[in-house]
């Protein structure tokens, strides 16, 4: 059967058809060439960069990197530095509070929104818009709202509560909570969105079954829904966790690490040692410690996520 008159168009068979197996490298060549930017980024920037920094964290690099080995000296100096200890403490306080509050607020908001409320779209838009903003913008706004002379404290006092005091911008004891308020304002919307998606993914019949069994709403959430949303919580945890370690812009904008050094964070320590203090070795050591922190967060997660799948 020929649809054409020209029999020579019986086409594609032939023309240099290889009868032998093609060489490995040339197989899928276009794909390999197209992936070169990815390979470069993965190997040179991500792996290469990380390894380079770790290696140089064992040197005495100061203004310029140089391979003069000093063993663990940089780390000893790091852990005996008061600024670094303050940074670590700050990050721990901020991290723990942020983790718990983001999860609680994010889930509560999502659960409330999931109750067939009117204006869900508008509310969601309001909860999420801070996430679209830069940490710099967030930091500066909250710096202004928490301004001790003209901001929130002043307004509350003006309303008659003369002894009211909330001045995180001036008070080194509570400055981290000033940052926390701003951080939560920006970050909870994202977690709410993820939680909401998780809630919407739960089979409607679960709710019907719970209702038939006479289980109350709150109890259903705690005993049935939350355990079912384990993967969503894990994802949220990883996102919040890796965000906390990177905390930098917000601090720069809102407090610049002050008052004094009371709101220093590790990322800031890295930046000032590397680009401000001509103290590269310290910066490398500190950033290696940041990496270690992330590894401590990520490895259990990876085992939970991927180790579990293999068994299942």
């Amino acid at each position: 059967m020929a649809l054409s008159d020209a029999s020579d168009v019986t086409a594609q068979v032939g023309q240099g058809t290889p009868a032998r197996k093609p060489t490995r490298i040339f197989k899928n060549l276009s794909s390999k060439i197209a992936s070169l930017p990815m390979v470069f980024t993965a190997l040179v920037i991500f792996v290469g960069g990380t390894v380079w920094t770790i290696v140089y964290s064992f040197t005495s690099s100061g203004l310029l990197p140089r391979l003069k080995w000093v063993g663990l000296d940089q780390y000893e100096r790091l852990w005996s530095s008061r600024k670094w200890m303050v940074s670590i403490e700050n990050l721990a306080v901020y991290g723990i509070c942020s983790l718990i509050l983001t999860l609680v607020i994010g889930f509560t908001l999502a659960a409330l929104l999931d109750r067939k409320v009117r204006g869900e779209g508008m509310l969601r838009t309001i909860f999420l818009y801070p996430f679209a903003l830069s940490f710099i913008v967030t930091g500066l706004v909250w710096q202004w709202i928490l301004n001790p002379q003209l901001g929130l404290q002043n307004v509350v006092r003006g309303m008659g509560w003369e002894s009211f005091a909330f001045d995180p911008m001036n008070n080194s004891k509570i400055v981290m909570f000033g940052l926390l308020i701003a951080g939560l304002w920006q970050g909870t919307g994202l977690i709410m969105c993820i939680m909401l998606a998780g809630l919407r993914g739960i089979d409607e019949d679960i709710w019907k079954a719970a209702r038939v069994d006479g289980i109350g709403t709150v109890k259903t959430y705690i005993r049935v829904i939350i355990p079912m949303m384990r993967p969503v919580f894990v994802t949220s945890l990883v996102l919040i966790g890796s965000g906390i370690v990177k905390l930098y812009d917000l601090v720069v904008a809102q407090t610049s690490g002050g008052p004094g050094i009371s709101s220093q964070v590790p990322a800031m320590y890295v930046m000032t040692s590397m680009f401000g203090g001509q103290n590269l070795g310290q910066g490398f050591a500190a950033s290696t410690m940041m990496l270690v922190t992330v590894v401590i967060i990520l490895v259990p997660w990876a085992i939970l996520e991927f180790g579990g799948k293999k068994r299942g």
């Binding site: 019986t10 086409a11 594609q12 068979v13 032939g14 023309q15 290889p18 009868a19 032998r20």
Partner: peptide
């Protein structure tokens, strides 16, 4: 022999 030929070249 089309063992290693492209799909479009096999007719």
């Amino acid at each position: 022999n089309v063992t290693w030929a492209e799909p479009s070249e096999r007719g």
